[in-house]
C-alpha cells in the first residue's frame, strides 16, 4: 500500500475514513431501528386486544371469523413445550456429558459431532416432513401434539447439546480433580460436582430451546395438525397415551389468523403474546448468564 503524505491525499483519506466509519455506525444502529420498528408495529396493532383478558382466557370460536380467544392454543403451546423438553432435555444433557466427560477421540465421536452439526442445519420444514412420515404415519400417532413434540424435540436437541457442552466445559478442571481425589467415582463426580456447577449454563440452553419451540410453526402444521375444536388433553386411554390430540399452538394459530383476511387484526394480538414470551425468555437468559459469568471468571 502506497501512502503519500501530500496534503490533498491526507484530506482524501480522512474523508474516506469518515464516510466509511459513518456507514458502519449507521448499519449497526439500523439493526436496532428495524427491530424496534417491527416490534412496535406488532404492538401498536395488537396490544389493545392482547391486553383484554377475554382474548387470552376464552376458547376459540367462530371458525374463520375468529370471534373467540386463544385459551386452547396457549394450553397446546404449554403442552408442546412440556412434552418436547421432557424428551429433549435429558437426552441433550446426557449427550453433552458424554461428549465433554467421556468421549474418546475416535470415529464414533466424530460421527456424533457430525450428526449434531448437521441436525442444527436442517430446516424445520424437513423436520416436519420427517415427523409426518415417521411419527404420524409410520408409528400411527396421527396428527397429534405427541408427534409434534417428538419432532420438535429432535429439532432442539443440537441447541441443548451445544449449550450444555459449553456449560460443562467451563467448569474448572480442578473441581473435577478435587472430587476424584476424594476417591469418588466418575458418575458421583459428575452428579455432585460438575452438573451443579454447570446448571445455569444448561438452563440457558433449555430456555433457548423453549424460545425455538414457541416460535416453531412449519413442523407443527405437518405433524400436529391444526385443530382448535376442543381443549387438548394431556393424557388419554387411547394410543398414543400422551398428548394424543391434534392441536394448534400460538405460532400456528397466528399463521392461520394472518393468512385469513377476516382475522388479520387478531393475528397482531397473538403476535404480542408471542413477543412477550420471547422477551421474557431473553431477559431470563441474559440474567442467568450475567450471574453465571461472575462465578467462574475471576
Amino acid at each position: 500500500m502506497k501512502i503519500e503524505f501530500e496534503k490533498g491525499n491526507v484530506a482524501k483519506i480522512q474523508m474516506e475514513q469518515n464516510i466509511a466509519l459513518g456507514t458502519l455506525w449507521f448499519s449497526g444502529w439500523l439493526i436496532v431501528a428495524v427491530l424496534i420498528f417491527i416490534i412496535g408495529y406488532i404492538f401498536y396493532f395488537g396490544l389493545p386486544t392482547a391486553l383484554s383478558f377475554q382474548y387470552l382466557f376464552t376458547p376459540p370460536e367462530g371458525g374463520r371469523y375468529d370471534t373467540g380467544g386463544i385459551l386452547y392454543q396457549s394450553i397446546a403451546t404449554l403442552y408442546l413445550i412440556f412434552g418436547a423438553i421432557l424428551v429433549a432435555a435429558p437426552i441433550g444433557i446426557f449427550a453433552a456429558i458424554y461428549l465433554t466427560e467421556y468421549a474418546p477421540q475416535n470415529t464414533i465421536t466424530k460421527l456424533i459431532g457430525f450428526a449434531i452439526e448437521n441436525l442444527a442445519g436442517i430446516p424445520s420444514i424437513i423436520y416436519g416432513l420427517f415427523g409426518l412420515a415417521f411419527f404420524v404415519i409410520f408409528l400411527k400417532f396421527e396428527y397429534s401434539l405427541f408427534a409434534g413434540a417428538l419432532t420438535v424435540a429432535i429439532m432442539v436437541l443440537p441447541v441443548i447439546i451445544r449449550t450444555s457442552e459449553e456449560a460443562l466445559l467451563s467448569v474448572p478442571q480442578r473441581l473435577r480433580q478435587s472430587s476424584l481425589a476424594l476417591g469418588v467415582n466418575k458418575w458421583q463426580t459428575i452428579s455432585n460436582v460438575v452438573l451443579p456447577s454447570a446448571f445455569p449454563g444448561i438452563l440457558t440452553g433449555i430456555l433457548l430451546s423453549i424460545g425455538r419451540i414457541i416460535g416453531e410453526s412449519a413442523i407443527l402444521i405437518l405433524a400436529a395438525g391444526g385443530s382448535i375444536t376442543a381443549m387438548p388433553s394431556l393424557l388419554s386411554s387411547d394410543y398414543p397415551f400422551f398428548l394424543p390430540d391434534s392441536a394448534r399452538t400460538l405460532a400456528v394459530h397466528l399463521y392461520y389468523q394472518a393468512t385469513s383476511y377476516d382475522s388479520r387484526g387478531k393475528a397482531f394480538a397473538t403476535g404480542v403474546v408471542l413477543i412477550f414470551i420471547i422477551l421474557f425468555l431473553n431477559f431470563s437468559i441474559n440474567q442467568i448468564s450475567k450471574s453465571y459469568r461472575k462465578r467462574f471468571v475471576r
Binding site: I31, V32, G215, E216, A251, F268, L274, I278, N286
Partner: peptide
C-alpha cells in the same frame, strides 16, 4: 445492539410473515 441482534434471532418466523403481510 448485541441484545437487539439476539432478540431478532429469537422472533418467530410467523411474526416476520405477519409484519411482511401487513
Amino acid at each position: 445492539i448485541r441484545p437487539a441482534v439476539q432478540l431478532l434471532a429469537g422472533i418467530p418466523s410467523v411474526i416476520f410473515g405477519l409484519f411482511g403481510l401487513a
